[in-house]
Nucleic acid binder design. Structure first.
Lengths: 150, 150
DNA sequence: TAAAATTAGTTGGTACTACGAACCGAGTCA
DNA sequence: TGACTCGGTTCGTAGTACCAACTAATTTTA
């Protein structure tokens, strides 16, 4: 079920239940991110671009890989963001073909604001849990997401 | 940080950390759903439509509300899915203006297949955890997502 | 080292997502 | 009945994302 969020008596599955909850929390999280983006006239993807470049300078292809998108898609994405003065293109020191992308001062400022905004918005979800539970959840998510570590 | 997934030394935040993990798991989950959709020539939204209609017959507006989209967006979405024979429009018994949407047999068949597919794909994430931990995570997510319940 | 192959990005074309505004037809209410 | 509201569709626009074709720079290789 799910992928649908509300209603629908979620029965008492066994293993499928966790998957459902995962999907549900993903949609809820994405809805929040989407909202934050929309409030600032940014698509989810553009939000991600800003987040990724917050502490990095990357070439187009690297950025596309992070996002799992085609380079041609990146061109347009970067075009539009650059037109808005959020980021800039620059030459890459090592490779004459490559194009580096990095945030403009305005972009940095916005990215910081967004980051805080997202934190506050998602806190309404996490604050449903007691501090102990939060720590617990963190541990479990860490384990689930980061097996390559070690 | 995050919204960026890999790399980036995730420091040792306190409260922000959980938010980051939540976002990270959301992106990972969405990537899986996206992939499943793409494998079947469906956008994420279309996937959701199928999932929602799996056990329901809804009018356009209700469907739009579930998805958080405009009615005009729904029209196009339903058009395309109907053109592919996945769902059908029908009259609503109670209101002559309303249009009901429901899955065609082919749609039901596909939806079932997708559901199983999603389950299998996401199991690679959840299986990182021991059964006890999975149960634990389920409990925590339930609490985080469903406070309105009682 | 010159030609061939590869790689980085851009451009152009297409399909889809999503929105808002304008628009009909079916209900409601006065 | 006439005014109003509600449910959907249509239209126009902007953005996302893909693939294929293309240019320029780099690397291979012969």
């Amino acid at each position: 079920m799910v992928i649908s969020e509300p209603g629908a008596p979620t029965g008492a599955d066994e293993s499928g239940d966790l998957v459902d909850l995962l999907v549900q929390s993903a949609f809820m999280t994405m809805a929040v991110l989407n909202k934050v983006g929309a409030d600032n006239d940014l698509s989810l993807t553009q939000l991600r671009v800003l987040a990724i470049l917050r502490d990095r300078r990357l070439r187009m292809t690297a950025l596309a890989n992070y996002l799992g998108l085609e380079k041609s898609t990146m061109s347009g994405l970067v075009d539009r963001a650059a037109r808005r003065g959020l980021l800039e293109r620059g030459p890459n020191a090592d490779d004459g073909r490559a194009v580096d992308v990095f945030l403009s001062p305005a972009g940095v400022e916005l990215a910081d604001r967004l980051y805080a905004h997202v934190g506050r918005s998602l806190a309404t979800m996490t604050s449903q849990l007691a501090p102990t539970e939060q720590r617990h959840l963190r541990t479990l998510l860490e384990r689930m997401l980061g097996p390559p570590r070690a």
